[in-house]
Amino acid sequence: MKQFFLKLFTWWNSQTFGTQLWTWRFGELVGQDEQGNRYYRTRGGAIDPTLNFERRWVIYNGVAEASRIPPGWYGWLHHRFDTPPTEDTYAPREWEKPHQPNLTGTPAAYRPAGSTLASGRRPKATGDYQPWTPGN
């Protein structure tokens, strides 16, 4: 019962019931990436009459975080490439790095020196600040 309500109401955990139903009725699996995300398009590559192009979407494996989409699949999703990486000989460039999760809002987030969250106390002013005054 819990899984049913999670599918019905949560969009951030894989897919909702509505997305699952839409994918089952109109979707065609195109491929899967190394993180387990599955990529779909309209069945047979049909053109959506309201959009005037093929609909493409991703079903995340776990938490829906857009930064988890690899560059090859990102290009296909955004219609930069006509063929998905599974059909094309896509090779990542040497400067493309592997995915790192977004840690913002977590205890492991980056907190620079001087941040009130870094050490709990802000460092004292050093006296090098010169306030602006009119006429100077």
Score class of each variant (00 low, 15 high):
Asn102Phe: 04
Ala66Ile: 07
Trp73Arg: 03
Thr42His: 10
Phe53Trp: 10
Pro70Ile: 02
Leu51Asn: 10
Leu51Asp: 12
Pro49His: 08
Trp76Phe: 12
Tyr110Ser: 08
Arg38Ile: 03
Gln32Cys: 14
Thr23Gly: 11
Arg80Met: 13
Gly114Ile: 00
Gly45Phe: 01
Glu96Lys: 07
Thr86Pro: 02
Gly114Thr: 05
Lys124Arg: 08
Tyr39Ile: 12
Leu77Glu: 03
Ala109His: 03
Glu94His: 15
Glu96Arg: 04
Ile69Gln: 11
Ala109Asn: 06
Asn102His: 05
Phe81Val: 11
Lys97Val: 02
His99Glu: 02
Thr19His: 08
Gly75Cys: 12
Ala118Pro: 15
Asp48Tyr: 03
Gly72Ile: 09
Trp57Cys: 10
Trp24Thr: 14
Pro107Cys: 13
Pro92Met: 15
Leu29Lys: 08
Gly105Gln: 11
Arg121Pro: 05
Asn37Ala: 09
Val58Arg: 04
Thr42Ser: 15
Leu21Arg: 15
Gly62Ile: 12
Arg41His: 04
Lys124Ala: 07
Gly31Asn: 14
Pro112Thr: 00
Pro107Lys: 02
Pro101Cys: 06
Phe26Arg: 15
Tyr110Leu: 05
Ser119Gln: 08
Ala113Ile: 07
Pro70Phe: 05
Arg121Asn: 06
Ala118Lys: 14
Trp57Lys: 11
Arg25His: 06
Arg121Tyr: 02
His99Trp: 09
Val63Arg: 15
Glu94Ser: 15
Gly75Lys: 12
Tyr90Pro: 14
Gln32Asp: 02
Glu94Tyr: 08
Leu77Phe: 12
